[in-house]
């Protein structure tokens, strides 16, 4: 952990052709990360559709509180404008333009930044956020997954069969626990963000399973995609140096009802 990350967090800049789109994405991402700078840059100087190089240059400087800035963009020419702005900076290595889905990437990056993740990790969170649906644990053959799962909840989420990751629970020396969601809404947006932030602070890979699906706990969107409601239990499986601590903190979070 660098000295900078002790005191400051990675900022975000959202570059869009549209002022409204940039502002909307920044608003959504900022909701989950109260302590980081999420700056929208959208439209041309005259208020039309397009990108404003000078405004991007300014936003990069404004969003940088010492830990660097991750830049997200909407379409190709916004990417080019962002890249030029980064190249013009005194130290381009402080800025990372990420190839990520704009909305999901911004939310994932904001949560990672809020959790104190360093520049590279925030960028990785944004880039990993594309198509962040939960993954089926056992089902790789593409059976019908639109029916009821074993908890009796009607699951409308589409299975992502064929892309199944290996279930992390089979990794040796994993720490796992059944955790009851005592709050009313379960793993909804805010609780999912809290859980992801908790994990982001630790040196551990954590997977959350609900029913037949599992989600990477670093991804708010994947956690939300599990659709785990209040009153149900999730399984937390952690590996890595802080695995035990990660499980313990998640248990605590759940016991407190995610501070709802």
């Amino acid at each position: 952990m660098t000295a900078a990350s002790e005191t400051s967090r990675v900022g975000l800049v959202v570059v869009s052709h549209s002022e409204m789109l940039a502002s909307g994405v920044a608003e959504l991402a900022g909701q989950m990360a109260p302590d980081i700078a999420v700056l929208p840059v959208g439209g041309t100087e005259e208020g039309g559709l397009g990108t404003d190089y000078g405004a991007v240059v300014e936003a990069l400087a404004d969003a940088d509180s010492g830990a660097g800035v991750v830049v997200l963009y909407d379409l190709g020419s916004a990417k080019m404008t962002a890249e030029m702005a980064v190249e013009s900076a005194d130290d381009p290595s402080r800025y990372t333009v990420v190839d990520a889905s704009l909305v999901e990437g911004a939310v994932a990056a904001a949560v990672a930044a809020q959790g104190g993740a360093a520049l590279a990790a925030v960028a990785a969170a944004a880039e990993g956020a594309s198509g962040e649906a939960p993954v089926a644990v056992h089902d790789r053959a593409g059976q019908d997954r639109t029916g009821q799962d074993r908890t009796g909840q009607d699951r409308t989420g589409q299975g992502r069969s064929g892309q199944g990751r290996p279930a992390l629970s089979i990794v040796p020396d994993a720490v796992s626990a059944e955790v009851l969601l005592t709050n009313e809404v379960g793993l909804h947006a805010r609780p999912a963000a809290l859980l992801a932030r908790t994990v982001a602070q630790l040196d551990a890979d954590v997977v959350v399973r609900y029913g037949d699906e599992e989600a990477n706990a670093a991804s708010v969107l994947a956690l939300m995609g599990l659709g785990a409601p209040g009153g149900r239990s999730i399984t937390v499986v952690a590996t890595g140096k802080d695995a035990g601590e990660a499980v313990r903190r998640i248990e605590e979070l759940a016991e407190r009802g995610f501070d709802d």
Partner: peptide, 15 residues
């Protein structure tokens, strides 16, 4: 061009 064009032609012709 980089600072005034506003579309893809700005970064491309600018570069």
């Amino acid at each position: 061009l980089i600072s005034t064009v506003g579309g893809a032609a700005g970064p491309l012709y600018g570069t």
